[in-house]
């Protein structure tokens, strides 16, 4: 990709940092209107929790810092499944997890959770091809998460990402929680401070 295209793509993502309004609200209103039966659904079946946990660790693995499982991400995504998703999203999400198992079975003769990390990455990565045509209306992660039509690949990746980078474990390992910064310095060397401050 040439630099100009890269900059334009980054700038588009940058819109999220700058502008988070109308399209998100409209999308939410539509999502609500399309779902008269608002309310919690059934929890994710036990058979799929193992698949979800393995997927969480596939997206955010343990490295020299803790991974998604240690940060409690599977429970967060399961909660979003039960209390936050629309019925259609729940169906798509459950189908997505089952498809991971089926594909792992087909490729490697094992359920997704029993496959190796490399095999899991291959199975989940194979979904990329199917989402190339998708782009959310509006800017950024929030808009995509709120989109009931977001494909399983994005819904899973996005919720796992949020679950990790808002967890105490994830923030303390990768970012920084500073309840009271107490000062602002506009121009510091990244050698002295390079962490994204969360509140």
């Amino acid at each position: 990709m040439d630099r100009r295209t890269l900059m334009q793509r980054i700038a588009l993502a940058a819109g999220a940092a700058f502008w988070m309004g109308e399209s998100l609200a409209v999308r939410m209103a539509h999502a609500a209107a399309e779902r008269p039966d608002a309310g919690p659904g059934a929890p994710l079946g036990d058979g799929l929790m193992g698949t979800l946990s393995a997927l969480c660790e596939t997206v955010i693995p343990k490295t020299d810092t803790p991974g998604a499982i240690e940060a409690g991400v599977p429970a967060f995504v399961a909660e979003m499944y039960r209390l936050w998703m629309t019925d259609a999203e729940r169906t798509a999400f459950g189908d997505g997890l089952r498809a991971l198992d089926a594909d792992a079975q087909r490729r490697f003769g094992a359920r997704f959770a029993q496959a190796t990390a490399a095999q899991q990455a291959e199975v989940f990565g194979a979904l990329r091809e199917g989402v190339k045509g998708y782009s959310p209306r509006g800017f950024g992660l929030d808009a995509r998460i709120a989109d009931p039509a977001a494909p399983f690949f994005h819904k899973a990746r996005d919720l796992i990402t949020v679950g990790y980078f808002t967890s105490k474990v994830g923030i303390e390992a990768e970012l920084a929680y500073v309840a009271v910064p107490g000062r602002f310095q506009g121009d510091v060397d990244v050698k002295t401070w390079n962490r994204q401050m969360q509140l």
Binding site: A11, A13, A17, F18, V59, R144, N194
Partner: peptide, 30 residues
Amino acid sequence: TRMGWTDQASEGDDFGAGYKKRLASLGPWI
């Protein structure tokens, strides 16, 4: 600002160790 993890997560289709590191690092200035 510099792009943070939410902005950087909305870009690309990567995942795994490199993705985790990319999101935690400081993105370009906006």
